[in-house]
Design a binder for these strands. Structure first.
Lengths: 210, 210
DNA sequence: GACTGTGAAGCCATTCACAGCT
DNA sequence: AGCTGTGAATGGCTTCACAGTC
């Protein structure tokens, strides 16, 4: 493996390129240049080439990139050639929305179950995904070899839930609770804070007003 | 105005500090050091001090920061002293979840209405927030002086909806649709792509396996 | 003694510019 | 002629280390 340190920003962009390439392919486009990709995703052509260069030489000089090949390569880089087993914890509004989110299924994610401790919800299904009690979370993760847990519970319970996931052998956590979470070093953790995103927006808006 | 260019990463962290300070305050803590904040948010103390130093001198040498004062200052920096009017477009799962998301109300955001073009939903309310037809979006934004639009419609309609928002005089857009959106230079745009977040997770997980 | 505020150093990411291929 | 791949230059963010203050 030659790669050593790849900027996270590069990975984010690769994911965006991938979606754009998929769109191009659907429109019957077979070849694309770094300049065209840049235009499609609001970036620069040098940036696109640099990002791809971390992982190999996917293009043809004088020509460009083959849309399908390139997308296949990116999908491989992102680790999406095999599907991932996912559980969602929290059957509230956000958890329900995430469990039906088409974008997950379309990429390589199987949402296998939702867990909640509201007795009235247990046994129900959200768009085909069953709801189980949190007491079964640990065993389910272990038995079904779930690799990713999406946390959509109130902030107060977030750490507690993550601890259960970790003890059951989860490998990655996507946390939507607005709370700082601790996990062991070998567990991947990403936080999505919806309010933070709005606040960055307002900061910029308040700024430009001057 | 002395500030010229503040890293976006700093703004994101300020938002996180703010939430942590709020939590400290609720626990009765009145004074805090940069080191303690760093510990609470998984950062470094130097980073905390640098972030704050962009905007002024809020601490006392040898002592630390006053929790309440500092949080007040950050809230001011983030532009959250006045409340912002927000509309959500798309009454699907995600739009519904967002419209009831407590984190928005708790900070400075009024979710005034949800818009959708599904006739069966018009007139209903999602947790107190009314649903109106998209045909009324333009006039509502204008009349109610809505500053922020949250886009939670399918990717195909996202640009279309944003165009309406812009023409009605919106100032900021938070886009959840997995599609690259164009807006004029004077409109703030932020994208939250849920699938991208999962994909970064899988990239890192696939990496560490080697 | 403890902790902030900050210049300087170090590190990382992006942009530039061009050599190399088709 | 057109476009990729990449070393070099630039710019930006983070970390270090310490002077300044309480």
């Amino acid at each position: 493996m030659k790669s050593l340190k790849i900027p996270e920003a590069t990975i984010i962009r690769l994911s965006v390129y991938s979606r754009y390439l998929h769109q191009l392919d659907k429109n019957g486009v077979t070849t694309v240049s770094s300049g065209q990709i840049a235009e499609g995703v609001n970036g620069s052509s040098a940036q696109v080439r640099k990002d791809l260069a971390y992982f190999g030489e996917f293009g043809t000089r004088g020509v460009g990139y083959n849309v399908l090949d390139l997308n296949q390569q990116i999908i491989k880089i992102l680790g999406l050639t095999n599907r991932w087993n996912v559980v969602i914890i929290g059957a509230g509004n956000l958890g329900s929305a995430l469990s039906q989110y088409k974008g997950f299924q379309e990429r390589a994610f199987n949402v296998m179950a939702v867990f909640d401790n509201d007795i009235t919800k247990i046994g129900l299904r959200i768009g085909g995904v069953p709801i189980y009690p949190i007491s079964q979370l640990h065993d389910f993760v272990q038995k079904e070899k779930v690799q990713i847990g999406i946390v959509a519970v109130p902030a107060t319970y977030a750490q507690e839930v993550v601890d259960v996931l970790v003890s059951a052998g989860i490998k990655g956590v996507l946390n939507f609770a607005p709370r700082v979470i601790s996990v062991p070093d070998d567990i991947e953790l990403r936080n999505v804070d919806l309010a933070v995103n709005l606040e960055i927006l307002t900061y910029n808006m308040a700024m430009t007003k001057r």
